[in-house]
Design a protein around this nucleic acid. Structure first.
Lengths: 342, 342
DNA sequence: GCGTCCGTTGGTAGCGCTACCATCTTCATC
DNA sequence: GATGAAGATGGTAGCGCTACCAACGGACGC
């Protein structure tokens, strides 16, 4: 009976309270909030005043339930501490912070199974869009993405067969470019050092290999990799291994900048001169690469921009105008620095 | 009429479909999923089979609406790219990935106003718990937290007046300890270099100041700070400024490890010997500190553990047994390394 | 003057789930 | 064998919101 008292939900104002105070129907309040243009100037003002007075905030759960569509972007990345993905996520947050959309972030820990589990979970929320890192989803994941009933953007990489849309760059070309640069700079016994070896690292390695083979310099003993997660410490250790295996090494292309930094520190420690004795190239071009001594050559990747662009594409698709080009290649840039200037 | 066909929501199975297939009432399915112990072995098996067959996933929105409580942890951090908060967030994700809880992550960009806005937004979702970084909320934010109707954990710092619970350590003590270490090591003209200067950095500075004053070494010209966000590049620049202002500098306590790394690189570049001419201490003890050459003394902070502990405390509170001690001090540890070993 | 269209507003009926209470069994107790 | 307690199950009535359709009034064309 006493309807107004019997609320389960702690008595925060509902749309009906606003409607009563403004002297209009609930549905008009709903419209005023979502499509202000379709409500007369006068009522809109009254409603806004009532919203203000009551401190009304719409319940996103009720909204999602009634409209069969949550104002949520699902975002799936393999790591939260890897600066590269943190930058992508930052780009996404920055692009979405103005609008009505919330973000549901999932950490796959580089696991396909975990990705499937999260996709299943996210799908149950009927998100407005999904942004997933990488292009190597399992068949089950691809299927979930295809049937998600919302725009999907695969980010970080590009490939021939987008589920829906893609934003990224070619890691293979990046690896190739880095290696070519070392070759052009006169290095010959160029090693590849890589940790984690996720699909993107694999493709960078493939690029390295292609460049080395083309120059008739490839030797499998030049490649040192491990599935262990990347770190500066690990960079140093892998470099030691590489050097032990191949003492004539005169250059290294590193999987990423953490590894490159570890290599640089180990060179200092072992009094190996950079770039004279060893040339170093990193990947991603984190802030510290430029400041390091000597500064480290790296492939600059547009992480933040990828996040922004992914959101822009998804938003366009939601608005009904999917971009003509479903795959956006944002490229990369070789930053030449002291570590390869011999 | 044709109820089964008229679904708005794209025809994914509902709890009623599962109930029909299993030959039980909908509420029993609901119970079997949430409190399996309260449903008989036999029905539970039938229900599980039906769930499996239909690929049923409960709709979290409907759940939240009906129970007036969403299975969501709201998490508010000032930055996503700062490795320190990324680690805290990782701890939170790792602790929560097994259970039913989702995570709603908000980025305050170090802004009190943005924090209020997000708290308002998160509150409207009736989260199961809120985890917020820092202890310097605006009065409005504190108020929102107090009235959130769920456990609240303030993380990263500890202080005398928790909204509900706290997990962290004393940044003031950390700053003091770092500075005392430099003094003990024989350094005298010890500078403080800090970027961003958020409240935690301010307290580290206060700790530095206390130690310096106690040793009668304090001089305001030794302090170099900027509100600009921290970076390795900035560390180098601030160090140059500090040195220009005070050429007799023989040690620096850095706000954080990025700054410390920038200082180290600038020392290399300017051929200033570390630790002989200049001693360096960082803060947080990122992975790279140990590998750097020379390795850098730093204050190790338990970021990941803070995330895990915050979740544990929140979960306990949700289960009805709030911990006796509302404030958990996880401490810190001084890691002595080559950069202060003179 | 009448019908038609459009813009504005409101009522009704759910969205998928769970809180609450009612019902029905079973089993121990006296 | 009656009584009650405890456990298992189900029905009903919403949670707060929006999709859908109806109603209304005024502008417009013929």
């Amino acid at each position: 009976m006493l309807k107004a008292r019997s609320r389960r939900g702690g008595g925060r104002p509902t749309i009906a309270d606003v409607a009563r105070l403004a002297g209009v129907g609930a549905i008009t309040v709903s419209r005023a909030l979502r499509e202000p243009g379709r409500v007369s100037e006068e009522l809109r003002r009254q409603i806004e005043a009532a919203v203000e007075e009551l401190g009304y905030v719409p319940d996103p759960n009720a909204r999602a339930l009634a409209s069969a569509r949550a104002e949520v972007f699902g975002v799936l990345v393999p790591s939260l501490t890897n600066n590269v993905f943190a930058e992508v996520v930052r780009g996404i947050y920055d692009s979405l912070s103005d609008g009505p959309f919330r973000i549901q972030l999932g950490n796959t820990h580089y696991s396909g199974l975990e990705e499937e589990r999260l996709l299943q979970l996210f799908g149950s929320q009927r998100p407005a869009a999904l942004i997933v890192a990488g292009i190597d989803q399992t068949p089950a994941s691809r299927n979930l993405l295809q049937n998600a009933g919302c725009p999907v953007v695969q980010v970080m990489e590009i490939g021939p067969d987008p589920v829906d849309m893609m934003v990224g760059f070619s890691h293979l070309d990046g690896g190739r470019r880095a290696t070519e640069h070392l070759i052009e700079a006169g290095y010959r016994r160029i090693g590849f050092i890589g940790a984690r070896m996720d699909p993107r690292s694999q493709r960078r390695l493939a690029g390295y290999r292609a460049a080395m083979q083309k120059a008739c310099l490839f030797d499998p003993r030049l490649v040192t990799t491990t599935p262990v997660p990347s770190s500066v410490t690990l960079g140093r250790e892998l470099f030691r291994d590489a050097l032990a295996k191949m003492p004539t090494l005169d250059g290294v292309f590193c999987n990423n900048d953490d590894i490159a930094l570890g290599v640089l520190f180990e060179c200092h420690r072992a009094s190996i001169s950079v770039p004279t004795t060893i040339g170093i190239v990193g990947f991603n071009d984190l802030d510290m690469m430029e400041v390091a001594f000597p500064s480290i050559t790296s492939i600059r990747t547009p992480r933040y921009e990828i996040g922004r662009r992914a959101v822009a594409m998804a938003l366009a698709a939601i608005a009904g105008n999917r971009p003509q080009e479903r795959v956006a290649d944002l490229g990369f840039e070789l930053k030449r620095r002291e570590s390869t200037a011999r």
